[in-house]
Amino acid sequence: APPGLGLAYRELNCDDPETEQAALVAVDYINNHSSRGYKHTLNQIDKVKVWPRRPMGEVFELEIDTLETTCHVLDPTPVVNCPVRQLKEHAVEGDCDFRVLKQDGQFLVLFAKCHSSPDSAEDVLKVCPGCALLAPLNDTRVVRAVEAALTVVNAGSNGSYFQLLEVTRAQLVPLPPSTYVEFAVAATDCIAKEVTDPAKCNLLAEKQYGFCKATFNEKAVGDAAEVTCTVFQTQPMLLQPQPDTNTPTTGVATAMPIPPSANLPAAAMVVGPLVV
């Protein structure tokens, strides 16, 4: 082929509906293909180049800024209904590079790379002096708070024993001195009231995930932990999201209260708030 042919990219407005459509599919892709952390939402499209692709179609090369929402990735709530983590809560942003193929009117993510980073402590304290900053997840106070909270969760469960999946965020609250943690759990084949050795428990074949928020006060008598958990209905894993999964209509269609699971007693679906 003569040199220079087919090497020109198409210029497109970052706020063009076609660019936004590709960006939303890309953000949907990372939310559907992450097993840890929180769902992210589109904040800003930084750059877009549209390259011709042989034999047909076009490839959207995108640079996107995202923001962390308060929904865990295992939470089936559509991301359009997930609140963005606010600055005073110590917001987290994502910087993403994507390549999205558009062919026959359908979008397909070819490449995705994201890096997330929390807002600076200076910025958080500027908008909210005295607010709790994100703490390292391996901090001993964080580990202790999660352990205490998990004990509370299982003490309140009339069904499965819940195993810790991951600690997703933690904050050391100055006043009153306490530790706030958020973590994901999964139901096991052990009964919470009967478990003797949690290490021998196995995750259920039909995975049952939950997400908990807890405040742990070490100074209080008896180590008080206040915990609220929500257990999600099992969600099928998608190998590749459909091009229209990001549309508001689809979001509304699935934005309904999570029905109780068939294999867990209703009382175990929402635990808390419990205080020990």
């Binding site: 210029e11 497109l12 407005n13 970052c14 706020d15 660019t19 936004e20 939402t41 589109l42 904040n43 800003q44 499209i45 930084d46 750059k47 877009v48 800024d65 923001l67 963005v84 600055l87 917001a91 942003e93 807002d119 910025d123």
Partner: peptide, 27 residues
Amino acid sequence: TAVEPGMAAATRPLVRPCPGRIRHFKI
């Protein structure tokens, strides 16, 4: 190939430069 000067510039649609709008807030 003969090209009329100024033709390309005159016919090129105006594209607003990126980045696009901020939907929430900027960190």
